[in-house]
Design a protein around this nucleic acid. Structure first.
Lengths: 145, 145
DNA sequence: ATGTAATAGTTGGAATTGTAACTAACAAGC
DNA sequence: GCTTGTTAGTTACAATTCCAACTATTACAT
């Protein structure tokens, strides 16, 4: 008898994580998608700029774990929609600084407020400690190399 | 001052869930991908058949929340690789019963064993209670409509 | 029995993502 | 100055996924 005999794949953490992630993303996705025509990667880039202010694409990559091609395409679309502007760095002209326009800021504020509400709804059945513990464990799992 | 002013989007549950899901899926994905040339949807279909035995495509859909086109295509590829067989139901000829072949069973057993090990590694830093609580909360989040 | 609706599963084409190769700019060693 | 290597970001093309329409079969109501 091997040890996997009593293992239930339905309890496999990556599976549960994916299911929870998909289910919980669905409702919020409607907001940035239907209201602003954005994709998930664009929302991610947007909120990084909202939080940190001016950043480079690779800076976003370092913080978000997003692949650079995803970032590149998200930035393009956000620039087309005039939610951000790009400026070449004088000192190193490979680098581009990204900044939210005021339209971008407004979208960010709106989505952030919606996210806050939705987050409250999601953690509704949990105690404060449970919610905090959940976030900590998720952060640890996400940080895993 | 609105309530989202002190909300940190980096702590937004859907975001954390997605990050944790992506990170934790990556390593295991290598196994079913590199070793068996399978995609995530195929692994999902496979393990549902491994757990429940003979099933229909829509039965898998009901349990897994996968969209029917994903299931249809996953089933096709698994059938091509001879990991499962399809049989028309006599009573209702729209329906097809899916069953793992013995090759499919072997793959399932192997992946399940690997998953068991990997799951142990993932929960390494957690206490039993923490791990159990995590799974419970993820199940609740996944079940949310 | 016949028209209408529902269900199981498939398919086509557009949209998105993945992967690898690419350009452009800088850096370092010789 | 030149080669070689590295980094920032883009692009091309293949692989996947999404969405909507489709076929085939059964169910149900008149």
């Amino acid at each position: 008898m091997v040890k996997s005999d009593d293992f239930d794949v339905r309890q496999f953490l990556p599976y549960l994580l994916n299911q929870a992630a998909e289910a919980s993303s669905l409702e919020f996705q409607k907001v940035y998608k239907d209201k602003y025509g954005m994709l998930r990667n664009e929302w991610r880039v947007l909120f990084h700029l909202g939080i940190y202010g001016q950043m480079t694409a690779s800076g976003i990559g370092a913080r978000s774990q997003m692949h650079k091609t995803k970032i590149s395409r998200a930035v393009q679309r956000l620039a087309e929609r005039r939610y951000l502007t790009r400026t070449r760095a004088e000192v190193d002209r490979r680098v581009e600084y990204l900044t939210l326009t005021s339209a971008g800021q407004r979208v960010y504020q709106d989505l952030k407020a919606t996210a806050a509400e939705y987050d409250t709804a999601l953690t509704d059945g949990m105690s404060r400690q449970e919610a905090a513990l959940l976030r900590t464990m998720l952060e640890r799992l996400a940080a895993r190399p």
